[in-house]
Nucleic acid binder design. Sequence first.
DNA 1: TTTGAAAAGTTGCGCCC
DNA 2: GGGCGCAACTTTTCAAA
Lengths: 165, 165
Amino acid sequence: MEKNFSHIAMKKKLDRADKALLDILQQNVDLPLGEIAARVNLSPTPCWRRIQRLQEEGFIRRKVALLDAEKLRVGVTVFVSIKAGRHSRDWFEGFRDAVSAMPEVVEFYRMSGDVDYLLRVVVPDIKAYDAVYQRLIACAELQDVSSSFAMEQVKYTTALPLDYI
Amino acid sequence: MEKNFSHIAMKKKLDRADKALLDILQQNVDLPLGEIAARVNLSPTPCWRRIQRLQEEGFIRRKVALLDAEKLRVGVTVFVSIKAGRHSRDWFEGFRDAVSAMPEVVEFYRMSGDVDYLLRVVVPDIKAYDAVYQRLIACAELQDVSSSFAMEQVKYTTALPLDYI
DNA sequence: TTTGAAAAGTTGCGCCC
DNA sequence: GGGCGCAACTTTTCAAA
């Protein structure tokens, strides 16, 4: 008879220190470990082990550099609402793959309600957007495509709320 | 007579290696320097200097950990379209600060066209969204608020296109 | 079983060519 | 741009609580 020891590695709930760690790391990932440990009132070793555990358990997906959109000349954000109409599964897969492959499309959602798909597209200017738009409507049969330009990015964060865990 | 040497530090255009570095770093920031250097066919020292320069010039804004939305119980994305009507500057500033302070609001745009503001909100479920919605309409006078739920996040990336630089 | 201190091993960083 | 060497950091080990 075998026993299941998975409960040893799997912690039921994250405690205050774990949440504090996640909060620090999703703001800034290149603080020295000693500094992080001090902020959560732990010594480096247990702090390091907690971070390892949070990675292994999948709370931390990856560590990335966030670049400056203006400097990369993609300061213009456009939201694209798409109505697809009735289509087959093959159609969707082709559409999904073609859109996902476009580097200007940074977010892509399948929606409920009026609109079928919503994209966030980043480009240098309206002219460049038109090129993306042309590629978009060429890649799959679409019923209706409507574009809304953002005037100002008031808030943009990759930091998720930790209040629900 | 003084000379302006700012052109020494300020590079006109990023070359192939710089773009390759940015591309690597916005995918994964904790590769060892030696590994990064090998991928861009440079030795570690000049590679390190380039990364420093890219940080100083502001191409790299920050380095962060991306967390798993499902694990944090914020797997549901809602887009909130807001029509504000005519309001004063004071009204906007109050609205902006209140909305920006809400951790569930991860993106917040001022839009052109039909809708005045667009928010991306992350929550555990519809019930939790209603609580956010109530806080939202309590924080400022709004003409119309309409919510669209995402069924599926087909693509989400923080990696910006490097094709325009 | 969990902690902290301290050792060992890597990596980053400044100086040189 | 590249090579070397020190300094700093991370990660492992180990003893103690």
